[in-house]
């Protein structure tokens, strides 16, 4: 499937990637090639096959309900771009 710049802009927006029209045009070609390429899957004989999400047919292991994590806020926030009063700061969110 061939994608146009409008579609590239739409998925860039969903992906939260800044993209101007020139960049979108550049990506459109490569993305079209990739979507064409993966269309080979259409020829696969997958009638009645269960999707495989995971290489091992195992079940989720359950962790005991216990607190194991100490408070290391200072360590974690030392690498944050913007914090104040223990809060991470972002531009004002309008609700």
């Amino acid at each position: 499937m061939s994608v146009d710049t409008e579609h590239v802009q739409r998925i860039a927006e969903l992906s939260r990637l800044a993209m101007d029209d020139d960049q979108a045009r550049e990506f459109a070609g490569g993305l079209s090639d990739i979507f064409d390429f993966v269309e080979q899957l259409d020829g696969a004989d997958i009638e009645g096959v269960e999707p495989m999400a995971h290489p091992m047919d195992a079940a989720q292991r359950l962790r005991p309900d216990a607190v194991t994590e100490p408070d290391r806020r200072d360590d974690y926030q030392a690498i944050a771009p913007a914090v104040e009063g223990g809060l991470y700061l972002v531009p004002r969110v309008i609700e």
Binding site: V38, P51, M52
Partner: peptide
């Protein structure tokens, strides 16, 4: 069309 199909191909 893509993801589910690819997961099935993966099993095949």
């Amino acid at each position: 069309a893509y993801y589910l199909k690819a997961q099935k191909v993966r099993r095949v």
